[in-house]
């Protein structure tokens, strides 16, 4: 409905004189944004640059944002000498993709019910879902720990997937919105013809709600991949550790192994760290970049509903 108009038309004005007035006075706005741009990107560019420096290059010009003598030694070191990195990486993908799949499944089912079906308690449940978002959760970490231990889901990626996928209110609203935005006549006809609700949902409604599913999956992927606190609390086995938590361990060891391995003298702790931090970031940034239009719209729509 109105949600599309919330995504701003970049043209502020239709009146010509006004537009020129705005354009003339716009330069200082961009100055503000350039400052924001620098604050946002300089740390990241510095990390990228550092990851392409060797020990000597970093020691001589630690602050330069351009690696004048680029080298892949940090990445070679990372891929060959850091034992746990592939395991962490695999676990992160399992966690993030698993969360996305389960969350899309349960949220689209529920979102469909809230969009198309009539049942007692519907509005009450919807309202409770919204209200519950605002109850602070960090106090629940201790209870969550007990629960996961009780269910024998500590140190289990599967348990963590369920835990992240359980954060359903926003995904349900996004899916509900996606189903509401497609016409319901075909579905009604199919129901009258005797198709089951599940078949209608799966074969007619779901393919049309692809946009909503992509948003939900992306949000879930990023949340699960980027989390620190919950993963850190629930997982302490190396074999189940994700990259977002394990990275800290890997960095701590890299200082020593940089001095002892075959890469001795070629890299320093800082340059190796930079390469690994960037690697841990790459998947979410790729998702974010590829899906940024969907992503922004999903956030806007989700937030408007509150």
């Amino acid at each position: 409905m109105a949600s599309t108009s919330l995504v701003p038309a970049d043209s502020v004005s239709r009146k010509k004189s006004l537009r020129s007035r705005i354009a003339r006075s716009e330069w200082y706005l961009h100055v503000v944004m350039i400052v924001a741009l620098l604050v946002t990107f300089v740390p990241i560019i510095w990390m990228i640059s550092t990851s392409f420096k060797d020990r000597l290059g970093f020691a001589e010009h630690p602050a330069s944002l351009i690696p004048w003598d680029p080298t892949f030694v940090n990445y070679r070191y990372m891929l060959t000498a850091v034992d746990n990195l592939p395991v962490y990486m695999r676990n992160s993908f399992i966690l993030a993709i698993g969360t996305a799949v389960i969350q899309v499944f349960v949220a689209s089912l529920a979102g469909y019910a809230f969009a198309r079906m009539h049942f007692r308690g519907k509005n009450v449940i919807l309202t409770l879902l919204i209200v519950s978002i605002f109850v602070p959760r960090s106090g629940g970490l201790m209870a969550l720990y007990e629960l996961m231990a009780f269910l024998d889901l500590r140190n289990s990626l599967f348990g963590l997937i369920l835990l992240f996928a359980a954060n359903v209110p926003v995904p349900i609203f996004i899916m509900r919105q996606a189903f509401l935005s497609v016409p319901k006549e075909i579905e009604e006809a199919a129901i009258l013809d005797g198709a089951s609700w599940f078949r209608v949902y799966r074969q007619i409604a779901l393919p049309l709600a692809l946009g909503g599913m992509v948003i939900v999956a992306t949000l879930a992927f990023i949340t699960a991949w980027s989390d620190y606190l919950v993963t850190f609390t629930m997982i302490d086995l190396d074999s189940q550790m994700t990259l977002s938590v394990g990275i800290q361990k890997v960095l701590a060891t890299s200082y020593q192994s940089a001095l002892t391995t075959q890469f001795q003298g070629q890299l320093s702790g800082e340059t190796a760290d930079a390469a690994m931090l960037l690697t841990a970031t790459l998947p979410v940034v790729v998702f974010y970049a590829l899906l940024q239009r969907w992503f922004m719209r999903g956030l806007t729509e989700g937030a408007v509903k509150f």
Partner: peptide
């Protein structure tokens, strides 16, 4: 910055 992994 919001979407970057917290630890990173």
């Amino acid at each position: 910055p919001v979407i970057l992994p917290v630890a990173v």
